[in-house]
């Protein structure tokens, strides 16, 4: 997915539409996640079966404590599944070592968090560039320019997070998440700390990423309005998915 090529020749529609035969880029099978609280095991996920196709954008909704964040962390390889399978681009995360999951995350996953989670000591530019550094391919100025211009950050790159608004910080976080062209972008309530205006900007940008670049996105949200920006909405309750219907 070369970004320059994508921009000069915008992708028409979504990759997954009308292509049900396409292999899911993300699939979970009977996924369980148990947390220990003293001597008691508390299930956060209770056999989740979930699929996301390449280029699809999916919103995951549900009440607090229903397992949304656990699902995101497990499919992102940040947490280990207790049972079941997690297939990311054909790789079963449950069979990978911690080091291998880290490597897969580095190359295939991008995260956006509710609290932005930018490194406070670095500038906006540094926060984006460090993702490229960790990725291992070094600083790519062309890719960097394209992403930062697309997200409207060109004039704010030399500012530290404390000098940026919440919306700007979240855009920096999105830029950091997509700078290495991950297969999947996972967003954990990315508008949760933003006012309605900035929330809309961020959601539009996520939609633009999906539409223009074919970026696969899985987003957790509490905001029902946010779901209108996504192709499909999945509802969770008590650690399981209760439905999964295409959004309007």
């Amino acid at each position: 997915m070369g970004i320059a090529a994508t921009i000069t020749e915008p992708t028409e529609g979504l990759l997954f539409q009308g292509k049900k035969s396409v292999e899911p880029i993300l699939r979970t099978e009977n996924l369980w996640k148990l947390y220990r609280a003293g001597k008691v095991e508390v299930p956060a996920l209770r056999g989740v079966n979930f699929e996301v196709l390449p280029g699809e954008s999916v919103a995951v909704m549900g009440p607090s404590g229903c397992g949304k964040s656990s699902l995101l962390y497990v499919i992102g390889g940040l947490a280990q599944a207790s049972r079941g399978k997690v297939l990311v681009d054909g790789n079963d995360l449950t069979e990978l070592s911690d080091a291998a999951r880290t490597k897969l995350r580095r190359h295939k996953i991008g995260f956006v968090f509710q609290r932005f989670n930018l490194l406070p000591t670095l500038t906006a530019k540094g926060n984006i560039a460090i993702a490229q550094f960790i990725h291992g391919d070094g600083f790519d100025p062309h890719r960097f320019d394209v992403v930062t211009q697309m997200l409207g950050l060109a004039g704010r790159l030399h500012h530290k997070p404390s000098e940026l608004s919440g919306g700007e910080q979240q855009r920096v976080a999105i830029a950091r998440a997509i700078i290495n062209e991950p297969k999947i972008l996972l967003a954990d309530e990315p508008t949760g700390n933003l006012d309605s205006k900035n929330s809309e900007i961020v959601l539009q940008m996520l939609r633009q990423l999906n539409k223009d670049l074919g970026q696969t996105i899985v987003m957790i949200t509490h905001n029902p309005e946010a779901t209108t920006y996504f192709h499909r909405v999945v509802h969770m309750r008590d650690g399981i998915i209760v439905d999964g219907v295409p959004a309007d």
Partner: peptide, 10 residues
């Protein structure tokens, strides 16, 4: 945690 989410290893 952020560095690890970006794929930084031990």
């Amino acid at each position: 945690g952020v560095l690890k989410s970006l794929g930084a290893n031990h």
